[in-house]
């Protein structure tokens, strides 16, 4: 559970991912991307229609009883089942973890995120109209060891790795490019850092005063 002060358990993958998802949306809105909520709106519309159907059946049953309402109840159950199928398909087949969709200067961008069980890595796939890119980074790049989210390293990572965001935020993009390069090098050839443990960058960050 995330507390009011923005601290989460650094061992809870769900909390790490949710906090990061929220930060991603806030960041891109802050860069004046125009958000397109149509996919979420369609899901909300389907869901609330379902709730209204169930509510109507509940009230009708309460007031009129089963015998008087059973035909319409059958119709309602059928409609609810169909909508539930459509709703599930929309969530797993269309949205698939969509966090942000929006445009800036005519460039459309859509970002989906996911994390895998017991793997503290944030995976996102970025689609810009035609092509899709998959990028990933460990959560330790923007979370301190005690679970505080750090906006700057997260923004540098995104701006450095995603061209459209980099164009909107050149300052972070420049710093992020360098960091991403270092991270990539560390992954292919783990270098022993003197006076530090093998984890390198994350341990440096975790000792930062907040």
């Amino acid at each position: 559970m995330s507390g009011g002060d923005g601290k989460v358990s650094p061992y809870s993958l769900g909390d790490l991912k949710n906090t990061t998802d929220d930060a991603l949306g806030n960041y891109l809105r802050g860069l004046s991307f125009t958000q397109d909520n149509s996919k979420l709106d369609i899901r909300l519309a389907m869901g609330y229609v379902m709730v209204v159907i169930a509510g109507a059946i509940f009230v009708a049953d309460y007031k009129l009883g089963w015998e008087a309402t059973k035909t319409w109840t059958a119709v309602g159950v059928a409609a609810y089942t169909l909508l539930n199928g459509a709703f599930t398909f929309w969530m797993w087949g269309v949205e698939k973890g969509l966090v942000f969709e929006g445009t800036k200067n005519g460039h459309k961008i859509s970002i989906k995120s996911k994390s895998k069980k017991y793997d503290p890595t944030y995976y996102i796939s970025v689609t810009n109209g035609s092509s899709t890119r998959e990028i990933q980074a460990p959560f330790t790049r923007w979370f301190t060891a005690d679970g505080y989210f750090e906006a700057k390293p997260f923004q540098r990572w995104l701006a450095g790795a995603v061209k459209e965001i980099g164009e909107a935020d050149p300052k972070n993009a420049k710093a992020g490019d360098v960091e991403n390069l270092i991270a990539a090098n560390n992954k292919t050839a783990p270098v022993k850092v003197s006076g530090s443990d093998a984890a390198g960058t994350p341990s440096k960050r975790s000792s930062r005063k907040v």
């Binding site: 929220d22 949306g25 909520n37 979420l40 709106d41 899901r43 909300l44 869901g47 609330y48 379902m50 709730v51 159907i53 169930a54 509510g55 059946i57 509940f58 049953d61 089963w66 059973k70 109840t73 059958a74 309602g76 159950v77 609810y80 089942t81 539930n84």
Partner: peptide, 28 residues
């Protein structure tokens, strides 16, 4: 965000409404 709040409330409401509709489906 208002939409996130709406989605969160919806998740909760769907748990209740789906349980109720399963019961009604069984009735039908």
């Amino acid at each position: 965000q208002p939409r996130q709040l709406a989605a969160q409330i919806l998740n909760f409401a769907l748990v209740l409404s789906t349980a109720f509709m399963l019961w009604k489906g069984l009735s039908v």
